[in-house]
Amino acid sequence: MVDEVADKEKALQPEDVLAHLADDLGREGFQRSLDEQHTATFVARGPKILVTFETLQNVLQISQDGTPIGLDFAEDKNWSLLHLTAPEDSWFRAPAVYAFFDELVDDCFFEDFDQVAFYGTGTGAYAACAFSVSAPGSNVLAIAPQATLDPERAGWDARYPEAKRLVFNDRYGYAPDMVEGAQRVYILFDPFRALDHVHASLFNGPNVVRLKCRHLDGLIELALRELDVMHQVTEAAAEGSLQEGDFYRLMRRRRDNNRYLRTLVHAVNRRNQPLRVALIAKYVLDKNRGGPFFRRALTHAKDVISRRGPLPDWLMDDAQEPQQTPEANPSAAL
């Protein structure tokens, strides 16, 4: 496994991601270096355009072959793509980026498209919200965005010391204000990550739809890919048609995602709920999808429960599937 990771890191380098984008330009596309950190790539395809903000670091961590999320979506759905790239977290706070979007507005660039949407995650989500003001009536899909990191307004968020050198109170600054002209703004966040929850709560306009993604441990974008719903969610959000009920129905697939289930076990353990831990672990192991983590979790939960009283019948070693009662229904624990 270590060799595989090393091989991947050796094979995929930041310049490879930009080269991958450049390969898809076509005759009408372009790739432009905006400054030492930021690159803009336009891939001309269909009459709808997705504007994405990604760090090269994130692409290399998430993608198997170095294909950015936006390019993967654009190829699948025949959307045009405007991709903003930075080597690492910059929140795209740079005069060269401001000037680029000013130029797009002056050239009426977005008016040539039937639909405009902005997408990003984390620092890219902040940028997607902030720069969506350049295309009024667009839709925004922002995964765990920061509203701002201006110390006067968000001094309570000390997670990003590198942001202290950046200015968040000038142009394209306070993201909740910048999305006021959007048609729909979808904010995906994990409510159990307290600071992400606070940032999400600052987006409170009538055009904002906040969608809770519980127990995904800051990896919502990766989870959407693993659940094979990334393109479906992105397309619906980009067109402004994503409904809360439909989103949560899609997210039920996480019940069979071990990353989510491991995070859920940790969360339930912290709340000292051994019976629920046992339900989750047994649910996974009975589907033959578990490993040492879930076996250890089940063993520990049984030990805690037995010290408090007798084990329920469905937790005995020779027990069959738990009966579908409120106390022993695996789905109720997920």
Rank of each mutant, 00 (worst) to 15 (best):
V2I: 13
V2F: 05
K10I: 09
V17A: 11
F30D: 02
H38D: 12
T39E: 10
T41Y: 01
V43S: 02
R45W: 03
P47Y: 11
V59F: 05
L60N: 08
G66N: 13
T67K: 15
I69K: 11
G70H: 11
L71Y: 03
L71K: 12
D72H: 12
F73S: 07
E75H: 14
H83E: 10
L84S: 01
L84W: 07
R93Y: 06
V97M: 07
V105S: 05
C108K: 08
A117G: 07
G120H: 14
T121V: 13
A125E: 01
S132D: 06
A135N: 11
P145Y: 08
Q146N: 08
D150S: 14
R153E: 14
W156T: 11
A158N: 10
A158I: 09
N169T: 12
D170N: 06
D170F: 03
A182H: 00
Q183G: 09
I187V: 12
F192C: 05
F192N: 12
P206N: 13
C213S: 03
C213N: 02
R214A: 09
R214H: 05
R214W: 04
E221R: 09
E221I: 02
A236S: 14
A237I: 03
A238F: 02
Y248R: 10
R249L: 11
D256H: 15
L261M: 07
T263V: 04
R276S: 12
T299G: 11
V304K: 12
R307Q: 13
R308N: 15
L311T: 15
P312L: 14
W314K: 14
W314G: 07
W314V: 11
D317T: 09
A319T: 12
A319S: 15
E321I: 02
T325I: 08
A328N: 02
P330W: 02
